[in-house]
Design a protein around this nucleic acid. Structure first.
Lengths: 142, 142
DNA sequence: TTGCTAATGCAATTGTGTTGCGTTTGAACC
DNA sequence: GGTTCAAACGCAACACAATTGCATTAGCAA
């Protein structure tokens, strides 16, 4: 009878999956995160819940397979996860910003990503703009 | 007195480094490769030479540090290396194409990468456009 | 409440890349 | 052609993110 997470559990069940605590917690975390989170980020944020590492990996895999989240490998070659915007008509264009100081990755939904001209015979299904630099917080201390 | 690799050894020494067989072989391989190669690709291609795994990693690290090569993490979170165009004035903007079928990564030097507007307080030092799709070879068989 | 199986927890394993350290070797200098 | 010496190497061990196997637990439909 916990009224805090009614919608999320509903949405999970609507996909034909079980609304487990781990799934609800990860989805809620990603919903409130304004940047792409790594597995380690999620492990830290939810450590009070006592979920197993592997469970979190499997929740994230399930979210990616279900189209609920995106997975990108950052420059340090660790996966980062962000919630897929359900109302985004086509998520084949996306921009991320990675801070060289704090390592955080931000989704830049406002930045338009234009599909460039490609060599003959090439076709594109997704375009991702990856910007490196200093974020708003770290830039102030530079 | 091998006349096959005079320029490469010269260029290496011009950087103040030793022209070792491993460096010459890796540079020659990357020069002829039309796509970004992973460490594993390079290990396979040069396995007849008997170089140690770690030596290849160190050669690649040295090339990146010296500005001779770029390193990008692909979607499977493995590093891929491509030769830096020596005449590129500023390599802070770069475009790569990754084929979903064969997994190969191509440098798209012709594609212009424009620096987008960023949120307040953010500053960018590098912009990379990463395009996913089907390359010229795989697209023909689709 | 019961029963089924999706989902979990734990342990072991994989794959990519790194570090430490003794040995070899490129190349500058005689 | 030697001699010298640090840069570069080879080997072994390590670090870390992520994956797999399997016995156990728990959602949820009936």
């Amino acid at each position: 009878m916990n009224a805090v997470t009614p919608n999320i559990a509903e949405r999970i069940r609507a996909l034909g999956a079980r609304a487990t605590p781990a799934r609800v917690a990860v989805m809620r975390l990603l919903e409130t995160a304004e940047r792409a989170l790594s597995h380690h980020d999620i492990e830290l944020a939810l450590q009070a819940n006592g979920f197993d590492r592997v469970t979190l990996y499997r929740v994230l895999d399930w979210m990616v397979e279900s189209g609920l989240a995106h997975r990108v490998a950052d420059a340090q070659r660790v996966f980062r996860f962000s919630l897929a915007a359900p109302d985004a008509p086509a998520h084949d264009r996306h921009a991320h910003f990675r801070c060289e100081d704090c390592g955080k990755v931000f989704c830049l939904d406002d930045v338009p990503v234009t599909r460039p001209a490609l060599p003959k015979g090439f076709s594109s299904s997704a375009v991702e703009l990856s910007i490196t630099g200093h974020c708003g917080h770290c830039g102030k201390h530079a």
